[in-house]
Amino acid sequence: MSWDEGWKDADAKLSAQFAETVGWLHNRDLSTIAKDRDFVGRQLALPPSVIQATKARFSNIMSTVRAVEKTRAEVRSDRAMRGDTSKRTVRIIDQKDVAEGVRHVFLSHEVLDAASVQHLISHNINQDYTLDRSVPSMSLDEPYELGFAEVVPSYFGDPEKLVRAAAFAGWVILKPESGDLLTQVARHLSSKRKRSENIG
């Protein structure tokens, strides 16, 4: 197979996932594409249903987190710093459905750093979305995932940054002392989710 034939074969396979593909011998085209604010390529318009579902999930989770943990923004301690320097990758060690559309996920440790939160986000993004010509399609069947963490580092001026990022990916991160509210929180989330889906 010649280089051109090989590239055409690869381009055909990649075209369903990306707005544009550029051969290695034409990599200078990347600069032109990057500078073109109006570039669309093969990318499709983002379906309103995906936008609505993502916004609803984020809103449902963040409103619940804020209601349960009004003092979360004040969490700043030496333990948070130790969490940043531990370099331990958080693992999902078990999970259990606790309400319709809500799953309790048992995490390997309760001190999360930014990398651990990113790992959890990547886990959900990979299972919740599929790409069609660079446009994400969200599965409406995946549950909200509820986990407990003693410490999530806060950022000056934006203390909810990591919790908010996790919520965007479907994670409900609460402090362990909220554990006795697990059933109530799960039912509350399930109810809000149903209302959102009915509106949609």
Rank of each mutant, 00 (worst) to 15 (best):
S15R: 05
R133Q: 14
G101V: 05
R66N: 03
D9K: 15
V152Y: 03
R103L: 07
A149E: 00
A56M: 02
H109G: 01
I33T: 04
F58C: 04
V111D: 15
A34G: 05
A67M: 09
V151P: 01
S63W: 04
L146V: 03
N126K: 09
S154R: 14
D4N: 15
S31D: 08
L120A: 02
R103M: 01
E197F: 12
L25T: 13
G6M: 11
G23Q: 10
S116K: 04
G179P: 02
E69K: 09
E197S: 12
A165H: 06
E142P: 01
E150T: 15
L146W: 04
K192R: 15
K35H: 08
I199M: 14
P159Y: 04
E74P: 01
T64W: 03
R79H: 11
A56Q: 05
D78W: 12
T130M: 13
S137M: 13
A186N: 02
L44T: 09
D11H: 11
A114Q: 13
R76K: 12
L44H: 08
D132L: 12
D158F: 12
D84N: 11
P136D: 04
L107D: 03
K8L: 08
A186Q: 01
V105D: 00
Y155M: 15
D97I: 10
F18T: 01
T71H: 14
L44D: 11
D38Q: 13
W24Y: 14
L140H: 12
K55G: 07
W3I: 07
E74R: 14
T54G: 03
L140W: 13
Y155H: 15
L182Q: 06
N27C: 13
F106W: 14
D141R: 13
R88M: 08
V185K: 02
Q43A: 09
F156Q: 09
V102Q: 00
H188I: 07
L107Q: 03
D36Y: 06
S178T: 07
T21H: 02
L112I: 05
D38T: 06
T130K: 14
L46Q: 05
P47H: 06
K8E: 15
V40H: 09
K96R: 14
S2I: 03
R42P: 00
T32P: 03
A167G: 05
K8P: 00
V135G: 06
S137Y: 13
S154W: 06
V117S: 00
L25A: 13
N126Q: 15
A99S: 10
L120C: 00
S137L: 14
Q17R: 13
E69V: 01
D158Q: 14
A166R: 03
L25F: 13
R28D: 03
G83V: 00
P159E: 12
Y129T: 00
R133F: 09
G157E: 06
I121H: 01
M62Q: 09
I61F: 05
A45F: 07
E160K: 08
G200E: 09
S63C: 07
S137G: 08
S116G: 05
Q52H: 09
P143F: 05
F148L: 02
G200V: 09
F39I: 02
W24E: 12
L131C: 06
S15E: 05
L44V: 02
Q184L: 10
S134N: 11
R187H: 15
D113S: 07
G170E: 01
R193F: 07
D94F: 04
H188F: 15
T32F: 08
I121V: 06
E100H: 13
H119K: 10
A165G: 11
K35W: 07
